[in-house]
Computed example of a mutant assay.
Amino acid sequence: MLKYKEEKKDVEGFITDIAKNLSEPNKQRVADFLLGVLVAESTGQKEVDAKLNRSQGIAQCG
């Protein structure tokens, strides 16, 4: 739980210190990125791992 609290503090600091000072197009880019992170987390780690293993298997040689 401590790691979560530290990460939350880091994200809040990022938003407060950096994102508020960005131009409107860059604010949208940050929002899109954060939404992508939320979507990736909601798919579940097992599903992500399965997709990574599948794609890595194709790329492996010999």
Results as ranks from 00 to 15, higher is better:
L35P: 00
Q56T: 09
L38I: 09
T16S: 08
K8C: 05
K9L: 13
K8N: 07
A59I: 04
T16Y: 04
Q28K: 15
N21V: 01
K20Y: 04
K3V: 07
N53T: 15
S42A: 10
Q60V: 10
L38H: 05
S23Y: 03
S23N: 13
D49K: 11
R29A: 14
K3N: 07
S42N: 14
S55N: 11
I58H: 06
L22I: 01
L34F: 06
E47F: 12
Q60R: 12
D32K: 08
L22E: 02
Q28I: 09
C61M: 08
R54G: 05
E12S: 11
T43V: 12
V39Y: 05
S55M: 14
Q60L: 10
V48Y: 10
K46Y: 05
E24F: 03
G57Q: 07
L2T: 09
G36N: 07
G36S: 12
C61K: 11
Q45Y: 10
K20V: 04
L34N: 00
K8P: 00
A31K: 13
L34C: 03
L52G: 04
L22W: 01
G57D: 11
N21C: 03
Q56F: 13
Y4F: 14
Q45C: 11
C61I: 08
K27Q: 15
G36D: 02
P25C: 09
A59P: 00
A59F: 03
Q60Y: 02
L35G: 07
P25S: 12
K5N: 06
S55H: 08
S42R: 07
N21K: 11
L22G: 02
G13L: 05
P25H: 11
T16V: 08
N21G: 11
D17C: 03
L35Y: 09
I15N: 08
L38R: 01
N26H: 14
G44A: 07
T16P: 00
K8G: 01
V37N: 05
V30A: 01
S42V: 02
D10P: 00
K46R: 13
V39G: 08
P25K: 12
V11R: 03
T43D: 08
T43F: 07
F33E: 06
L2F: 08
K5L: 09
K5F: 09
N21E: 09
S42P: 01
N21M: 05
A31W: 03
L2N: 12
P25I: 02
S23K: 09
V37H: 02
P25V: 05
G44T: 05
A50Q: 09
A40W: 04
L34K: 00
A40G: 15
V11P: 00
E12K: 10
R54T: 11
N53K: 15
V37P: 01
V11N: 02
A50V: 04
L2A: 14
K46M: 05
K8L: 11
L22V: 01
I58M: 07
S55I: 12
K20H: 03
T16W: 05
E24V: 12
P25M: 06
S55Q: 15
Q56K: 14
N53H: 09
F14A: 05
P25G: 07
